[in-house]
Amino acid sequence: MEVSININGQQVSRDVEPRMLLVHFIRETPGLTGTHWGCDTSNCGACVVLMDGKPVKSCTTLAVMCEGHEIRTVESLEVDGRLDPIQQGFHEMHALQCGFCTPGMLMTTRALLDENPNPTEEEIRTAISGGICRCTGYKNIVAAVKWAAEHESAGVRQEV
């Protein structure tokens, strides 16, 4: 069936089987491979994208369910060559090694800061509890989110 989804502000249309998962629609149709396809069981959080501003696991959402909704992926964070403060925070605080969980972590924590600009450490840890990192550990991710929260209030957006 024909489905049309707003992804990062662009309307993307394609004839798909209803069983197609959102993660595959995003990766195949506009070719946005920043969203990672991980465990496929809604446990690891690598596939998290924003749906109407809220983080959701795109491996456990059907593409057809997203028509009429706004999807935002990791590719939308950088604007005109300037990193989002959350991306800059991950860079500054060394919050990734292999980077597989990173897109999900970035989108989850972007949504956290949109809702709560000054989260406590506990609030950050709760927010990312739906994501699994197997190499860096969570300490630097928490530090990166704190960095972003502190610098975002100052309006920092650094050039890539």
Binding site: S42, V56, T60
Partner: peptide
Amino acid sequence: IADPVVRNR
């Protein structure tokens, strides 16, 4: 119950 991302849906 599950995690905050799952709880959104």
